[in-house]
Every structure is written in structure tokens, then in C-alpha cells.
Design a protein around this nucleic acid. Sequence first.
DNA 1: GAAGATTGACTTCTCAATCTTT
DNA 2: AAAGATTGAGAAGTCAATCTTC
Lengths: 164, 164
Amino acid sequence: MADKNRNTIDLRQVVWSEFLFVHASVGRQIDAGLASAGVLSMDWYDVLLTLERSPDHRLRLNELADRVLISRSGLTRLIDRIEAAGLLRRERSVQDRRGAYAVLTTEGAAALGTTWPVYERLIHEHFGKLMSDEQAQSLHAFLSKLMPAPTPSEPVQLGIRRKP
Amino acid sequence: MADKNRNTIDLRQVVWSEFLFVHASVGRQIDAGLASAGVLSMDWYDVLLTLERSPDHRLRLNELADRVLISRSGLTRLIDRIEAAGLLRRERSVQDRRGAYAVLTTEGAAALGTTWPVYERLIHEHFGKLMSDEQAQSLHAFLSKLMPAPTPSEPVQLGIRRKP
DNA sequence: GAAGATTGACTTCTCAATCTTT
DNA sequence: AAAGATTGAGAAGTCAATCTTC
């Protein structure tokens, strides 16, 4: 701690409190926008997109829990709901019968496609359009330090990639 | 939307997804650190600090709900718990007997004081120390655009201010 | 009737315990 | 016994309905 004087306002602490507020505020607005458009919520989108990007559109539940930052038991229940909606299915692993995969269904892929244009607009509206190019660079440089090391073959991407 | 090509990766969208992940990841680490130190959680800290900064250490529940971004009913229950722990108390307004205030207690103020050094260390450890000065400036410039207009008499401040 | 706050019913998350397979 | 996933019990949030006061 470089600064022992409590009266001095540390800009990084201000940034942290703004970070918390903005996450809550913008997250609510975007989820409300998605709901009123009748498309996927951010949570479901995140799970299904993670599957879409994985080899064979499938992932071990364990792995999925780490990617979407939810507890194991929380994931089991989230997967239950998404599976009941038909957007993914579970498959038991053949080699290791303890483990299960979540696999994206055709309906799930379709839901991603329907959601993305709406989500994209909402991200821009409530978040992106207020950011200058320099701010975007700077934010990315900082936030990426707090991200898990990405698989080199799977670059970061939020939207749906068309077939080339 | 300036860009109609879905294949083009928009940096702002990447920043949004990093923003979500980092919030979840760092928030968990900090809350775990607070819990293992036996001090207030971020939620409780946020409520009590908001009271501490308000005139007479009190605020209408309605107002409080807006500041901490929680639904009215959610706030009622959160306040119930904090009140049961003795860190604040409710007071009925005399002029308008529909309304209630939440008022910080001595115990609540003490809890803020105990929590802050721990919280400060955790913010630095998991968030602040990874941020350059330029990044802090840049982040603040962007995030403050998404914050509600501050009362001029109450500047943004996260920690506990000592009496001058 | 409208405003402020609370309550009931429901949803979703978490931890700890459990079950199955290795 | 350990790993992977699920289940039970409990905590905490939301919406819609309700109660009190203006």
C-alpha cells in the first residue's frame, strides 16, 4: 500500500466502486432489453455461446462451470433449465462414465442467432457507444490481465461467426 | 450500428464480455477475502457506507434502494437482516408516516471501520494493483459517464474519511 | 387514488452431503 | 479414496399483491 493516509482519495478505489455500480446498472438494462425482445438472457447466452465455440459444440460440465463462473451445483440447475427448454442436451461420456457433456442443439444454435442482433444493439446502446477508441484499448489492456489465459486456437469473440 | 459485418470483431464487445467475467471473478475473490476475515460483505458495506455519507447518517429506504441498485422488496429484506445484526435501525418519519429511514448505529459505524482496511487491501490486491495510472484515468473517464449525477456536496469516495 | 414500504409466492444461487464411477 | 455430478436444505433476490398513510 503506497499511501497510508486515509484521507487521500485513491482513484483506483473510486474506479472499483464505479465498476460495481455500472455492472449492476448496465446489466439490468441489457437483461431487461433482452427479456422484452423475447430472446435469451445474458446467462443463457453465455452458456450456449461457450458451447458453440467448443469443439463439436460440446463441453464437460466441469469445464463449463469454470468458464461461466458459477458453482458446480449452480451449473447443474442452470443446465437443467436450459435442457428442459431444448437448447442443449446432456450426454454421458463413453470413456469416463462419471462425466457428462453439455451439447448444443440445433434449437440452441438458432436461439443464439436470434439473440445476437438484439444483444449487440443493447451492448452498443448502453455501454459501447459511450467508450472512445482509446478507452476501449485501455480497458481491454487492463481487463485482459484479469482473464484466464485463452486457448490460442480460440480467440476471444462475443458474437456469432458466419461460415467464411 | 457502424459495422454490418458479423465477422469483424468489435473491440467494445470484447471489452463487455471481459467486463462481465472480471466482475464475477474479482467480486468472488474479494467477497471470499472479506468473509474469511470475518468482516462485512460488499453488499452490507455498500449499504452502511451510503448511510455513513448521508446527512445525519440516515436515508429514506426509497433513496437507498436507488443507490445500491436493488428492488424495493429486496431492500426491505436486506435491511431486515442488517437491522437484526444491530448495524442500522429503522425510524419512522414524523412528517410523513408512510416513509421510513434507515439510520446507521454506532455498531454499524464501527463495523465500517473494521471492514475498510481489509476491503482496501483486497481491492488493491485483486484489482487496483494491475491498473496503470493511465488506465485508471481512462476507466474513470468512461465509467463516470454511466454513473448517476453526483450531489456536488458529496464527492465520490469509497473509504472512511477521518475527521479533518 | 397514489406513494412508501412490506409480504407471499416463486426463482435461483450456494454449501455440504450423497451417489456413481474410476 | 478421489473425481464428477447431483440433491437437499437454506439464503437471498424478484414480481405482484397488499397494507398504511397521504
